[in-house]
Design a protein around this nucleic acid. Structure first.
Length: 193
DNA sequence: CTGTGGATCTTCT
DNA sequence: GAAGATCCACAGT
């Protein structure tokens, strides 16, 4: 079952926590790839010095300020795409970064996109999973309630969710210590070894 | 197996 | 003009 718009209209921390164990799917030119979300981070707008939306609305971050359930992608370090899900209602700029997936559907296609890496290397990081899923800058603003990219519920995937500190945000002052990263406990496909 | 540095470009100062 | 929500190749152990 595809998650409805209402799922995304709640606060970013709730959305980040509940996305663990759901399945992210892309459907491009009849080619489907999908994986279980095992790692997320919440970025909480005006409360959070690490969030891109912290300093207000710009051309890049305007999608943050719209309603939840849309995709925010951006280029990091000049070479990698990061995939985020916008959370909460209009004018509350929160988002959830998808950091790792456990590959499920279209694994062969993922390997082609990633250059024949082994299963554990396909989606264990934000740049990697974006490449494996075929997500590019063209997905900026894509609707998660549409057909090309969406998140659905899963059966028989229950895990313990753990909250930890976020990755690579030490520059964000006090916000660097918030426990706003959520992981499926002991999962083999997390981005950090 | 671990550690280090290069690649590459958008955004905001 | 500098730094960033990263990844990978390559060198050394």
């Amino acid at each position: 079952m595809k998650l409805p718009r209402e799922f995304y209209l709640r606060d970013g921390l709730t959305v980040a926590r509940e996305l663990i164990g759901k399945k992210l799917v892309t459907n491009l030119s009849e080619k489907v790839t999908g994986g279980i979300i095992v790692e997320t981070e919440a970025y909480m707008g005006t409360l959070d010095a690490a969030a891109h939306s912290y300093r207000g609305k710009t051309e890049r971050t305007k999608i943050f300020f719209g309603a939840g359930g849309f995709v925010y992608v951006y280029l990091i370090y000049g070479m990698h795409i990061c995939t985020n899900v916008v959370a909460n209602v209009e004018n509350i700029p929160e988002a959830v970064l998808i950091r790792a997936l456990e590959p499920v559907d279209g694994v062969e296609l993922m390997k082609v996109r990633r250059g024949n890496k082994n299963l554990r290397e396909l989606c264990s990081g934000p740049g990697k999973l974006s490449q494996a899923m075929g997500i590019t800058k063209n997905f900026y603003g894509a609707d998660l309630c549409g057909e090309e990219i969406f998140i659905e519920t899963t059966e028989n995937f229950s895990v313990e969710v753990k909250a930890t500190k976020r990755i690579n945000v030490d520059y964000a002052g006090a916000a660097a210590d918030y426990l706003w990263r959520f992981v499926a406990a002991d999962n083999a496909f997390l981005s950090v070894k």
